[in-house]
Design a protein around this nucleic acid. Structure first.
Lengths: 244, 244
DNA sequence: CGTATGTGTGCGATAATCGCACTATCCGTG
DNA sequence: CACGGATAGTGCGATTATCGCACACATACG
């Protein structure tokens, strides 16, 4: 094979958290999912050739994968053949932790309104990470923080992750903030996720089979820490009650 | 050689809109995506064996696919090995028509509050179907309709689909309601999506490369048809303006 | 009109997948 | 506690789906 294109390092256009195709993974499915992640990073769409190059597969392979994704409504092609994510993802996404989110929504709305700050629901995703699943902005406030669901953070950075850890038995290497949260009923962190903003979160009591979760708010200053912390802890408790 | 049809119909447990593995589709990716759709229909999770049986693949194949999905955070396993959808889908879903949805949100909130009814954003998904992408409930109302985003409907049933068709050049076989919508500036339908409820929608003006879309509301009675229709049409227009 | 760029398709070589056989783990029971 | 049953997970060779070349088609541009 003299002709093999040995481009060392296929030169990815996106440097997100890469997933290494470990043994025991389906290469084809992996490639298809990488296309979805690539498209998520390119709101204006990509051509088949661009996708093939970014993913590091032959153009015809990308073509076949795209056709398959398209059949499932997970991507679409506009009139100029550019490919972007499809509405089918909305349907799938709706089913993720559906009960948790359905029950959390009114509680978060309530919390956001009483604290007059943006409220969030965060779930644990792995040993080391959490992901924001829901963000509810207050109905009336002069100014408030806004951010999108879907963001991933280290579990030991930010109030939500600390709050989740505080619902678990103490470990040797946990941050002191975790035990503080265990005693107070809520966790607080400043500038760990977004600089200049303060997070105050409380862990939702553990339930079997369910994801570990936390609710909380993002505020600009913490002079009201005790009051806000109490409201957040109450919200987490009532959500836990609803989940049995 | 004709593809050897496997043993008589593998007996699916879910009878959702099946996607037939046409030639030119990746079988492996298709199977992986079918797992996601299957999980979406089973909020309490499924075991590996159950998934394998429902999808119609060998248990070890399902295992490998699940591992791959898991690595991408598209599914997770709880402490009892039951598998359900993962939070990674929320991130992907956030990127679907992100600009359209970002611009639509305040407009829909406004619309929902002025009409005191649930507002929606619907996009076209294929020649024959539309999908609800966003649902905004009014802030204050005694009683209002609520439904989840992600639902699919025929393009020629329901006010949103008719409104989208009304933004396109007339066709020979279109329903008379479409041309009525073209003249009025909004489409109205009763009981076509949900019985006993009335939809009033307006098409968002067409933009190149963008999805065809409509905004509208769901109400219980249409005595105010003209006023509501005007509000809906105005919302659609201002959304179109924001999109250039 | 001819070149250039990019998309879509048929088909044989190849490599990824499939599925068997086996092991590990968990749970209820005698 | 030992046992049986059920489900989850792993190694590896046969098979088959995938890969990527060669070619046809579409569109843009000077």
């Amino acid at each position: 094979m003299t002709q093999t294109q040995d481009e060392a390092a296929p030169m990815r256009a996106f440097d997100m958290a890469r997933i290494e195709p470990d043994s025991g993974m389906s290469k084809t499915l992996h490639n298809g999912l990488e296309i979805l992640e690539l498209l998520a990073a390119h709101p204006n769409g990509l051509s088949v050739s661009e996708i093939a190059e970014c993913i590091g597969v032959h153009r015809t392979v990308a073509h076949r994968l795209i056709r398959t994704l398209e059949a499932h409504r997970l991507c679409r092609r506009d009139e100029y053949k550019r490919i972007s994510l499809g509405a089918g993802l909305v349907t799938l996404s709706e089913s993720v932790e559906q009960d948790l989110r359905t029950l959390a929504r009114p509680i978060l709305e309530d919390l956001a309104d009483t604290v007059e700050a943006t409220a969030h629901l965060v779930v644990r995703e792995s040993d080391t990470t959490v992901r924001a699943m829901m963000v509810i902005e207050p109905r009336r406030s002069q100014v408030h923080i806004a951010f999108r669901p879907g963001q991933v953070h280290p579990v030991n950075r930010g109030s939500a992750g600390l709050a989740i850890l505080s619902t678990l038995p103490p470990t040797a290497d946990e941050r002191p903030e975790v035990d503080r949260a265990r005693r107070l009923g809520y966790a607080i962190s400043a500038g760990e996720v977004v600089s200049t903003t303060i997070g105050i979160s409380a862990g939702v009591p553990r339930r079997v089979g369910g994801a570990q979760a936390a609710v909380g708010v993002s505020v600009f200053d913490a002079t009201d820490e005790a009051r806000i912390g109490a409201a957040v802890a109450a919200a987490a408790r009532s959500l836990g009650d609803l989940l049995h």
